[in-house]
Design a protein around this nucleic acid. Structure first.
Lengths: 96, 96
DNA sequence: GTAATATATGAACACTTGCTCAACTATTCA
DNA sequence: TGAATAGTTGAGCAAGTGTTCATATATTAC
């Protein structure tokens, strides 16, 4: 199975989105439904700024989608592929 | 689904192993069977040193396993979980 | 209009990562 | 023994990443 360099890069980018504990925890919280930035920040004990920066990356990779309501922005997972990847990873981590 | 900080870190580490194009290409080559460091280096057009450094990381994460035969060291995937993760990622990348 | 709230953004900085290069170990062959 | 081959390892460094802090934007309340 030879892989083009482009696809190798795309795959690496995909997995990079889950290669940081803060992002993993954001994904894990959004599995239960949408949350605003402030709620995420509180649950994660991170600053809103740090959360916002991470959400930006996740948004650009189409891992999450934003919905604006008044001055709040609610985020949710964009795609169930992400959930599958997450669960498969979790399974791997737990069965060792 | 609340995730402990430890598991978030472990998950992030797992996905980190696939978060680099060189490592992704190594995994993709090893899907077809074991290969020595030199053969990997040639197929990847990377130095043996660079490949060896990456293999070290993959070994530590138990993504690959080494078999020594004379002065050669053959690497293969350690676990079919990795293959599943890889294929799921590839599917995601290709269906967009 | 002003003030308060919710989020986004850019710069700066510490930390991490992946490579190169040189030196090293281990094995085979003569 | 010595030379050649296969791979590993550590130092050094450029590039990338995640956070903080200050500032900016957008919306709501007054």
């Amino acid at each position: 199975m030879t892989l083009t360099e482009l696809k190798a890069i795309q795959l690496a980018e995909l997995f990079s989105a889950l290669s940081d504990a803060s992002r993993v925890r954001i994904i894990s919280l959004l599995l239960d439904g949408e949350l605003g930035v402030n709620a995420l920040a509180e649950k994660l004990t991170m600053t809103e700024s740090a959360v916002s920066h991470q959400l930006r990356g996740l948004r650009q990779m189409r891992f999450v989608r934003a919905r604006k309501a008044g001055r709040q922005v609610f985020y949710r997972l964009d795609d169930d592929h992400i959930e599958k990847l997450y669960r498969m990873g979790l399974e791997h981590v737990e069965h060792k």
